[in-house]
Nucleic acid binder design. Structure first.
Lengths: 96, 96
DNA sequence: TCTATACTTGCATAATGACGCAAATGAACA
DNA sequence: TGTTCATTTGCGTCATTATGCAAGTATAGA
């Protein structure tokens, strides 16, 4: 349950990239992704790196291009495990 | 699927507060929560307000004190709906 | 080897956010 | 009404982060 995981999702641009990439349903290159936003490609590249560092995306280099794709299994598993953790949290009345 | 929702969870202190509050399994006052952290109570109060604004907590004022509690249903539902959305995202190959 | 393409990294700047302190609000109670 | 306690809000400061531009790296192809 890491704050870094949620931090990766806390930026509107990164979230939009993730949704778009999920919609692609196939790996996409940085250029393909960045052409959809009025933002410099270097910025998109950094966002993709951040999502990858959080374990949400994975990348594969083929020739000159880098293909990013969603790690559906780990991503959805992470979200559901947080939901489960909060739901099944063992009561603890003590403070400090 | 809002970035603000994840933004509320992207801070380690806020996440710790949420976990603690979930562990309490009952509403807790700002003082009760803040006594667990070496942080000024005003900061905790702001964190609680942020979590509430994100729909993760709710508050009730009783006398001089404000009781915060987790909105388990909406919180876990939000996480699971994001997981579902990414998982069942309709493919869309077009760019821009 | 030279050039073009795809992407990443360095650096500066601007915006955002966390924090502490002090003051303000609001409720209970003498 | 005045005091005290619980919480919130205003404000200044420091750290982090998003962004753009320019330069760097790496790969493909002429």
């Amino acid at each position: 349950m890491s704050a870094a995981f949620f931090g990766a999702l806390s930026d509107p641009t990164r979230l939009a990239i993730l949704v778009r990439l999920a919609g692609f349903a196939r790996p996409a290159t940085v250029s393909e992704i960045s052409c959809c936003y009025p933002i410099d490609m270097s910025v998109i590249s950094r966002h993709l790196a951040a999502l990858k560092a959080a374990g949400i995306l994975e990348s594969e280099k083929r020739g000159k291009q880098v293909y990013y794709s969603v790690r559906y299994d780990t991503f959805t598993e992470a979200l559901r495990s947080v939901a489960d953790a909060v739901e099944n949290c063992c009561p603890d009345d003590r403070c400090c």
